Computed example of a mutant assay.
Amino acid sequence: MWITDGPAVLMDSAEAGAELNVEYPGGGLPVQAGISLPPGRWRVRAVHTEADEENWIGQERTEPRRPRRPDPRLDRLTCDFAGHDGT
């Protein structure tokens, strides 16, 4: 779970977050993309696949985390189990 207080930044994982605004010796800044996220709790799913040593891809998906609702079946199962001894 990832908890945010607002917008985030997508960046190349080869860069340190503290260096996003530091210019390269040859000029230019690391590539970054601002993402508008509302504050909240997020579930992050990620996958990394390699075809060979030179070809690979990493993908991440962010989904809102919804609070779990109690499952009413669990209450019924607990009651059924409690009464299983015949009482």
Score class of each variant (00 low, 15 high):
Trp42Phe: 12
Glu63Ala: 07
Pro39Tyr: 02
Val31Gly: 11
Leu74Val: 10
Ser13His: 10
Gly86Phe: 03
Cys79Glu: 13
Pro39Ile: 03
Arg73His: 07
Arg73Pro: 00
Ala82Gly: 12
Val47Asn: 09
Ala18Leu: 07
Gly83Glu: 08
Gly58Ala: 13
Asn21Trp: 05
Arg66Tyr: 07
Glu50Arg: 14
Pro7Thr: 03
Gly58Tyr: 02
Arg43His: 10
Ala82Arg: 12
Ala14Asn: 14
Glu50Thr: 13
Gly26Ile: 11
Trp2Asn: 04
Asp52Asn: 15
Glu60Gly: 15
Ser13Ala: 15
Gln32Trp: 01
Gln32Thr: 12
Pro39Gln: 06
Ala16Ser: 14
Glu15Val: 04
Asp85Phe: 08
Pro30Met: 04
Glu54Phe: 11
Asn21Met: 10
Asp80His: 09
Thr87Met: 06
Asp12Leu: 05
Arg76Ala: 15
Arg68Val: 07
Glu60Tyr: 12
Arg73Glu: 14
Arg66Cys: 02
Glu23Val: 06
Ala33Phe: 12
His84Pro: 01
Gln32Asp: 06
Ala16Cys: 11
Glu15Met: 13
Gly58Pro: 00
Asp52Cys: 05
His84Cys: 13
Pro72Lys: 03
Asp75Tyr: 08
Gly58Lys: 05
Arg76Glu: 15
Gly40His: 04
Pro72Gly: 02
Ala82Tyr: 09
Gly6Asn: 03
Gly27Ala: 07
Ala51Ile: 13
Arg76Cys: 05
Asp80Val: 06
Tyr24Gln: 09
Asp75Met: 08
Glu53Lys: 11
His48Asn: 10
Glu60Ala: 15
Arg61Leu: 11
Val22Cys: 04
Pro70Phe: 06
Thr4Ile: 02
Gln32Cys: 05
Trp56Lys: 09
Val44Lys: 05
Glu54Asn: 14
Gly86Ala: 03
Arg45Thr: 13
Met1Trp: 08
Asp52Val: 04
Gly86Pro: 00
Leu77Tyr: 11
Arg41Trp: 06
Glu19Val: 01
Arg65Asn: 06
Ala8Ser: 09
